[in-house]
Amino acid sequence: MTKLRPRRIAATALAGLIALGAGLAHAEPPAKTLFSSKANPSAGASQSLGFYSNGCLAGGAELRPDGPNWQVMRLSRNRRYGHPATIALIERIAGEAAQRGVWPGLLIGDISQPRGGPMSSGHASHQVGLDFDVWLQPMPSPRLTQAQRETFPFRSVLKKGTFTVDDRIWDSHYRDLIKIAAEQREVQRIFVNPGIKKKLCETAGRDRGWLAKVRPYYGHDEHFHVRLFCQPGSAGCKPQPATGGGDGCNELGWWFNVALQPPKPGAKPPKPKPPLTLAGMPNACRAVLGAPDKGETAIASGSARGQGADAAYASAFAPAGNAVPLPTPRPLH
């Protein structure tokens, strides 16, 4: 009988442990399933934990579905939560744009889930409460009912089949709204379609400093995506590298000549990544997932949000509507 050397025994044992760990990770449900099942924020202080595309949100704040200068879309998705700084920023941008006559009201898309984390559809980011989407359509008058907000169609600002902005839709108000958002001190990046970035570069005039924050990216032709810096008090938040200097307009050639070109005939599609699990996320996210609901004690005592002042506040802006139906899938570009 052959004797195994100590080193070989150790190596065999290590390989077994690695295989066991991989098996356990594989058996763990996708994190998107766990986080999308949580209907309420966690108790405790507000913190962004991890990176924008791999993290979670503790103590999330809720954006009211209806405000003086905004409406939240697709309410049944329950993605209107964020860091308090994010919620305050949305309200400030909406108010400033309306006051200056730039935009009558914002249609707000996804922010984050109640506890952040990966979503079941639509985004890789939006996980730490520091991202939000603004539809590139003014809030209509009269306001949309809750039922209408579930089916109100997305609208691209590009000419169909091109990466060129459609001037039958676009005017200076679109540029000025994005500029207002970019000039906020909390904002690190704004993602738009490369065609929109090109239009902004052509029409910005001499005041171009804000353009550095506006970054071209795939899709983003029917909304723009605002991203905040990691906020004070969130020591576990992983920042994104700085955008750098300049207006970024000289980088567009790569997008139109390389990135947006169709794949070569016969090219293999990229292999999809396995779904993110809790094992691959910051350790603190496991605690966030298992924490009690924010305001759970108040709810148990009959003073839940929505039964008093909050309900009255919302009814002051929201039109009467039917029960919210199931959401329609969001088209991906």
Score class of each variant (00 low, 15 high):
Y81Q: 03
Q99D: 07
A85V: 06
A58I: 02
S120V: 03
G82T: 02
S120I: 04
P84T: 06
R115D: 10
P118T: 06
S120P: 03
R80L: 12
G82V: 01
P114Q: 14
M119L: 09
T86A: 10
D110W: 00
S53A: 15
M119A: 13
S53Q: 12
N54A: 14
S120R: 03
T86D: 04
A58C: 11
I111K: 00
A58G: 08
I108V: 14
S120Q: 04
Y81T: 03
P68I: 03
G60R: 00
W70F: 15
G122C: 11
I108T: 05
G101Q: 04
P118Q: 07
N78A: 14
V72Y: 00
P118M: 09
V72M: 04
N69R: 10
R79H: 11
A61I: 12
T86P: 10
P84E: 06
L63T: 00
Y81C: 03
G105K: 00
L107K: 09
P118K: 08
G109E: 08
G109V: 07
Q127D: 13
G60S: 13
A61C: 11
L75D: 03
R115P: 15
H123E: 02
E96A: 05
Q127P: 13
G59N: 11
I87F: 02
A124Q: 10
Q99P: 02
A94L: 04
N54Q: 15
L106G: 02
L107E: 02
A98L: 05
Q99G: 11
L57W: 07
H123P: 07
G60V: 06
L107Y: 00
I90R: 00
E91M: 02
G122T: 06
A94T: 03
C56K: 02
N78H: 10
L89E: 01
V102E: 05
D66L: 06
A88G: 02
A97G: 12
D110I: 05
S112D: 07
R79Q: 15
I93T: 06
E62W: 11
E62F: 14
Y52P: 01
R64S: 14
